[in-house]
């Protein structure tokens, strides 16, 4: 389990992480969400004992990250957001090196390596050069090396970033497998849907501060307040905006290049009434869609919902 108690990190005048309190229970998979520069990576690097916090502390599996860094590293699997691989190296050698770096005795390594290779579906590439792997495979290899010393807690920093959709799906499948292994996971991402089906808890961070944290259901019910509608009309989008703004169910309207965005906060499943209203009013509607919940929308609503200063 991970316990973060008032963690703070400053880079000069910038406060990257500002008095962060968060607990991840044993066996939980927590999605750690925030835009780029929110402080996700800084938090994770502090947890991985790679960065000294300026204030506050945290513990991993009951070990303090500052006083017992070696114990923490032994219990921890850390996958950085950017990583390189060694050239001229075979897949099994790569894993063997990291097992050795975690003081796994030589005789136990082959068994562990084949286990993690099987888990990450790289068994058939065991003797291939690391460089010949595709990006998605490298990502999986990095996950494999993170698992090779059988850690209790996994810190995964943007595990699916920069991957094509197919590789992204593979990584997600793999993460789902990990969740079944009863490990404690902290997975960061700037895309909510990527984690929504995977994690049972979610924490949202922005500007180094925790915006909200809780189970997926809790967060989702907080977000149920509204939907974003994307509307396109043949002409007269300005008038359309004005018309929409007058509707009681619409709380916010904006327009860019003929693309109208409106926040709908009426009854769920009744969005069609807005469309009917527009058509009846003579607007030549070309498109009317509901956009997937994106991160910005969540921030807006999560902060508003809590009434905090964000």
């Amino acid at each position: 389990m991970i316990e973060i108690r008032g963690l703070t990190k400053r880079y000069g005048p910038l406060t990257a992480v500002d008095n962060l309190w968060l607990t991840v229970e044993r066996g939980d998979a927590m999605g750690f969400i925030g835009p780029n520069g929110a402080g996700k990576t800084t938090t994770i690097r502090m947890l991985a004992t790679l960065l000294k916090p300026d204030a506050g502390t945290a513990s991993v599996s009951g070990h303090d990250i500052q006083r017992q860094p070696d114990e923490v590293r032994g219990k921890l699997g850390y996958m950085p957001d950017f990583f390189g691989v060694y050239e001229d190296m075979m897949v099994w050698e790569y894993l063997d090196f990291f097992a050795a770096a975690h003081c796994v005795p030589r005789s136990r390594r082959p068994g562990l390596i084949s286990d993690v290779l099987e888990l990450t579906d790289l068994g058939h590439r065991r003797d291939d050069s690391v460089n010949s792997l595709s990006r998605g495979m490298k990502q999986r290899l990095c996950l494999a090396k993170t698992l090779v010393h059988d850690p209790d807690v996994l810190l995964l920093d943007e595990p699916a970033s920069g991957l094509d959709p197919r590789a992204r799906m593979e990584v997600r499948e793999l993460l789902r497998e990990l969740c079944k292994l009863e490990k404690t996971l902290l997975i960061s991402s700037h895309i909510l849907p990527e984690l929504a089906g995977l994690c049972n808890k979610i924490a949202i961070i922005e500007n180094g501060r925790l915006v909200t944290a809780g189970s997926v259901d809790e967060i989702q019910s907080q977000l149920q307040g509204g939907t974003k509608l994307i509307i396109r009309v043949m002409d007269g989008s300005a008038e359309c905006c004005a018309h929409l703004a007058a509707l009681p169910a619409i709380t916010q309207v904006g327009e860019t290049d003929g693309r109208i965005e409106a926040i709908y906060q009426g009854a769920a499943g009744e969005e069609w009434q807005v469309l009917r209203e527009l058509v009846n009013s003579g607007f030549r509607v070309r498109g009317f869609t509901e956009e997937e919940i994106d991160l910005e929308g969540i921030y807006v609503r999560a902060t508003r919902g809590l009434g905090s200063d964000g």
Partner: peptide
């Protein structure tokens, strides 16, 4: 340079 140092530092080495 190759960004492998981070992972090295996170081990017990």
């Amino acid at each position: 340079e190759r960004q492998t140092l981070e992972m090295l530092r996170a081990t017990l080495l």
